[in-house]
Amino acid sequence: MKSIALLCCCLLIPACGNWSNDDLEFLNAMPDKESLRAKIPTGTTGGLSGEGTRRDALAIGERSKLYSDTRGASDQFNGLLNFLLRALDFVRTLPPTTRTSDSRTWGPWDDSENPGFQFRVVIKKASDTQFVYAFQHRLKGGEFFDTVTGEFRPTPTLRKGKGGLTIHGAGATQLKDGKLFDTIEKIEMAYVTDQLPVTVVMKMTARPGQPLTTLEYGYQENADQSGGIGFRTIGTDPNVIQLDTGTAWLSSGAGYGVATVIEGTYRGATHFECWDASFNTSYVKQTWPGGVELGDPATCVTVSGFPRP
């Protein structure tokens, strides 16, 4: 009997690996950076290389300022995504540290980017149709605090579904590369990736005393690779308390944008700008006193779901 038990042990001990269908379900709940990333046409020549040299004066045939601003903002948004979700790339290469029937935990591990800190990723199955997750850090020996929390409702299509996440500024700002969050209380995101149009919305809430109190972001991607981005800023400047900015584009790159003061002294002031497939301005119209109208409005394209003014 003893030898049989020993044989069984010998056979059991070497069985190992990360072969798990359940792990895949949990991993599926984590956000897909590629799905959330803002994809703005860039052309085939990498035409934004001159971003830093755009001119202040508007001129037909020059690189569109509104496009450039939108592209810059989307790049910053994508960079923020990378920062938030970079741990995913690391976690996906490793089997969970702890498995329970309704949770998986990766870590805690030392955070090489933030000496003195440890981090872990916890995913729980809240129900058959909902997963919740948290990226957590702690000072070694301390209590874990949330840096990112989220939830995901999967669909039969891998990594597609509805989800949301919140970046907790109080936690993120403790990290070396989280200084951005010194002025941000939290960032909330929601996304729908299982159907077209893919939509991603984000709301950033500033800490009290900041000139910009709220930044809202919306991104939509259509089936024909046309799409649009919208920004809403709410601040303390009495002239421009709320400014809504929206841009839209075709898959060719041609598009248009409009910025409108919604609230403030300049309420109603609108800047409308169209650009061609080379991202050069083809039409500009400003509605405030002294504003200009340049170019031919007939050059402006139309993007479904994003009406022009």
Binding site: P14, G17, N18, W19, S20, L24, E34, R92, L94, R159
Partner: peptide
Amino acid sequence: IMGREFPGTGLPAQNYQTF
């Protein structure tokens, strides 16, 4: 020694070994 990959999905490769 068994392995499986999920190309193009972002899911990690998995493996399993047993006697």
